[in-house]
């Protein structure tokens, strides 16, 4: 798995989350920059899904395959689902849902890195 890509995803997610947080504080709805930011992130995550599956097939590391692919898939879904859900709420809290979605992507990246055997343990447990 490309660690660089994972760090890029974390950076992008935090960026989008930060922007969503600004909108939340300013009592604004989900706007176009937030939408496009999430769209870019989703595209990068699709790339990560493909790359991650290829890396999983080629690696000799002991990686929990099902969980690994499950995290990759969930990460791809998080931005679109949170945007659709966020747009549906006509209050500042719509952007709050996007913040949650982005935090989820970061948590998933930390778990992916941990499964791959690198990085800080991140959120784990049962």
């Amino acid at each position: 798995m490309s660690l660089t890509l994972s760090y890029v995803v974390i950076g992008l997610s935090l960026l989008v989350a930060g922007y969503a947080l600004v909108l939340l504080v300013r009592d604004r709805l989900v706007d176009n920059p937030l939408f496009y930011g999430s769209a870019v992130l989703a595209l990068v995550l699709v790339g990560q899904l493909v790359g991650g599956c290829v890396a999983l097939a080629q690696t000799s590391r002991d990686v929990e395959g099902i969980t690994f692919v499950g995290y990759l898939l969930t990460a791809v879904l998080a931005p679109p689902v949170s945007i659709v859900w966020g747009v549906a709420d006509k209050s500042r809290w719509g952007t709050g849902v996007v913040v949650i979605g982005m935090v989820t992507v970061v948590a998933l990246q930390l778990r992916l890195l941990a499964l791959w055997g690198v990085g800080p343990g991140g959120l784990g447990g049962g």
Binding site: S82, W85, D89, S91, W93, G94, G96, V97, V99, I100
Partner: peptide
């Protein structure tokens, strides 16, 4: 499920 509740449901 609206307003802050939507965020709660999301979490």
């Amino acid at each position: 499920s609206s307003g802050p509740g939507r965020v709660l449901v999301a979490v």
